[in-house]
Amino acid sequence: MNNDHVMLRTEGLAKQFTLHLQGGVRLNVLDGVDLEVRAGECIALAGPSGAGKSTLLRALYGNYRADAGRILVRHEGALFDLASALPRTVVAIRKRTLGYVSQFLRVVPRVSALDIVADAAHDRATAPANAQATAAALLHRLNIPANLHALPPATFSGGEQQRINLARGFIGAHPILLLDEPTASLDAANRDVVIAMIAEAKARGAAIVGIFHDAFVRDAIADRLYQIAPYPQAA
């Protein structure tokens, strides 16, 4: 049955925020999201700004807690509901199955770019020596010159930090990848590298969900669009 290839599926996913510091204002962002992603498939989240694309992506990673519904993830052959999983299970799923490339780089200050990337491979139980070599190759591919590898990325430019982030997200070769604007601050050459990397990930069977504002990137890699309608806010 084809169902075996479903890597990620949401059922009736809902998310709202209660802002206690603003008098308990409630923001309903997601409601009844049903999404299905298969192995080797790339889905682009679409919708106007503020529709909840980033919220959905973060909910899929377990970063935002779902208020209702299920997030089923195929992790090592079995389906787990990320919305109700124990924190430890979520950590294990993130380590081995669910990769995420955010827009911001948040790392321990003093650590070198190379170690940050290699460290992400360590989570996938790769030998440390291998991880270093793979990390260096990946950084080269993303046009981070070797003389930057040993430096901590705190002082890097936005585009460089974004590429460190990408290397970190891709080195683990996770079966599911969530990409939040992976090419936002990249020039055309680097953008093409990222497109190629995403295409390779799809080819090895990764299921990908992403937010791509750049129509060129979206057209190059997305198989389907998933339209998020702005939640009708009570006036």
Binding site: L19, H20, L21, N63, Y64, R65, P87, V90
Partner: peptide, 21 residues
Amino acid sequence: AGLTDQVLDDPAHPYTQLLVS
């Protein structure tokens, strides 16, 4: 209580929201 990034990025309790902000 929960995963660190969940609690810090999506704080639910008023006190946690105050701490994070």
